[in-house]
Design a protein around this nucleic acid. Structure first.
Lengths: 328, 328
DNA sequence: CGTGAAAATTGAAACGTTTCAATATTATAG
DNA sequence: CTATAATATTGAAACGTTTCAATTTTCACG
């Protein structure tokens, strides 16, 4: 509760002097410095960060906005951001967009409570982002399209990823390949589907709409879609799931149907979440660490006033495990 | 960059009037309200959060301080905190203690950038916490002992957990039970060990120090300790690992030694991290969600000026999977 | 039309810092 | 010792809000 004024008074110096001491500016004599420090210690002085930031118009903090801080999916991404941010001597705060317009996420974005923001959230509306991006507030948008002047986009090439996933199955001799999509409104899911479609076409294998089902990116959705898929008499030899969670849900349905992976049916996922490793799921890995690190890099370049590309793209990679069988 | 003054000027009203409109105080006439709103829209006005917080001395934000935001371990805990915090209409920010004295964690703690802090971090030194806890700044400390006036501690009964883990093995007929500890300085690890010891004593089975090895809570450490344990001629029938990560590392070592789990050897972990489920590890579950939710609850009670207990304790629960065999 | 009460508007102080420019002190050289 | 330069210290303005208390406007009623 003690303010810098109290410290100054106790130390018998001007507020400005106290401020200089407390901020390590070296234009004050050793003995007054000691007086101030002692007074601060005695009063257990803690600076009020808001007042300082207000005056400085600089926070030395980068905000990372996620739909849900707690999701394991973000884990590696955060690591990438964290590494770069601390290397630059900045701090990182993560806020979830949970809570709508009154969420901390919105506060950090619109009220400029950080020097820059990395947004990986689809809950955040375009309007909010657009209005926050006024002036020269660096904002990096992950995996999301938005035409906006002062904003930078980084995306993972989902179409390419979808293409390679499908191609991988084709190369392994599969021809009857199903796709279980995410929710129809998901841009990512549509891109992955586009890649799937293109790969089939390129291979001269037609797309069969009876093998395309819509899921919702959850375990349960994957399970459901898989069950429906299996209800048909003509069954695919491989399934490409729009993400790993659905693939893992699908595994349960396949098991229940008495199908062994990969002997009876092959599956491939998307994302390479942590669990994928434990369930031996072959999948398309998103470069999450790189995504995080690159975002942070770009923020700092913007902060330095450097010119940066308005949008960049990262690519995926196939992680081979044991859920895809080579057809003879 | 437009300030409230600009808005006021454009709308031809006093700054105070603009402020009232912008904050939804209903003592202004509809037509001036509209004027202000229009001006704000036109200038793309965004309030400066620091100035507002400074004046209000209230942030409506709770900070959660973790050693490492990205760890999957915290996932469920964060969920618990998040749920309660948003129910109260507050926002949540997570900051990692990564970065030492200049980390955001320290900033939030000492500079009172939030209305309350939940600290689940051992990197944060006692000194920092003590000095931050001056006045009536609500701080909840998780899983860490600290004598300090204005601070509340919540801990999980690790000794009890260790006791039950060991007891579970004993009840399943095991007598030769090894313990692989965390780092010696870990308070948690010592408590778990104390429970282990007590359970053995209560069962009339002596503690054999050749079956106690020190690990470091990592995969690698568990693997190493296990290998050393197995190098001895007299082998245990069961191993109690100080945490799941070490248990998972240990599994690799056991597999290499040609030992089948649970047929040849039984193991039990501690924590119930996400992966435990996928590797079928029987373990002692920490009530992480409850831990998070309770912390948040307590913060709000402190904020309301209610009297709260200085420390509380939560209990663990055994999650049975297939890594422990019943001895005949 | 005058009165008073209610409603709307306003000016100014405050929140706790930082930092500029000015003043006071000390040290250095002549 | 004095003049000057270098070093320390200071007062005051600013940062952008919120909010109290005071003033002005509006309106209903007798």
């Amino acid at each position: 509760m003690a303010t810098i004024k109290d410290v100054a008074k106790l130390a018998n110096v001007a507020v400005s002097t106290a401020s200089y001491v407390l901020n390590g500016v070296d234009k004050v004599s050793p003995k007054t410095k000691e007086k101030v420090l002692e007074a601060a210690r005695q009063l257990n002085y803690q600076k009020n960060g808001f007042a300082a930031d207000l005056k400085r118009t600089k926070t030395n903090t980068i905000a990372l906005i996620l739909d849900d801080i707690s999701g394991p999916f973000y884990s590696v991404l955060v690591e990438g951001v964290q590494d770069i941010v601390s290397k630059e001597g900045y701090g990182l705060v993560a806020c979830s967009s949970h809570g709508g317009a009154s969420s901390t996420a919105v506060k950090f974005l619109t009220e400029k409570r950080a020097d820059g923001c990395i947004v990986f959230s689809h809950k955040m509306t375009d309007d909010i982002i657009r209005s926050a991006s006024s002036g020269n507030y660096p904002i990096v948008l992950l995996d999301r399209k938005l035409e906006c002047d002062s904003t930078v986009m980084i995306e993972v090439d989902n179409e390419d990823g979808g293409y390679h996933a499908t191609d991988f199955l084709l190369k392994n001799g599969h021809k009857k390949i199903a796709y279980i999509s995410g929710p129809a409104e998901s841009y990512n899911s549509r891109m992955r589907f586009a890649g799937y479609k293109k790969a089939l076409e390129d291979a001269g294998v037609g797309l069969d709409s009876k093998w395309v089902f819509e899921g919702d990116f959850t375990n349960r959705g994957g399970e459901l879609a898989t069950t429906m898929l299996l209800a048909q008499s003509d069954k695919p030899t491989a399934i490409f799931y729009g993400n790993d969670e659905m693939a893992i849900g699908g595994m349960a349905a396949l098991k229940r149907a008495g199908l062994k992976i990969p002997d009876d049916i092959s599956i491939i996922g998307f994302d390479d979440i942590l669990e994928a490793k434990y369930v031996n799921l072959t999948t398309v890995k998103q470069p999450k660490y790189e995504l995080g690190a690159l975002s942070a890099h770009i923020i700092f370049r913007m902060l330095n006033g450097e010119e940066v590309e308005r949008s960049s793209k990262l690519y995926t990679e196939i992680i081979e495990r044991q859920s895809v069988r080579r057809m003879t």
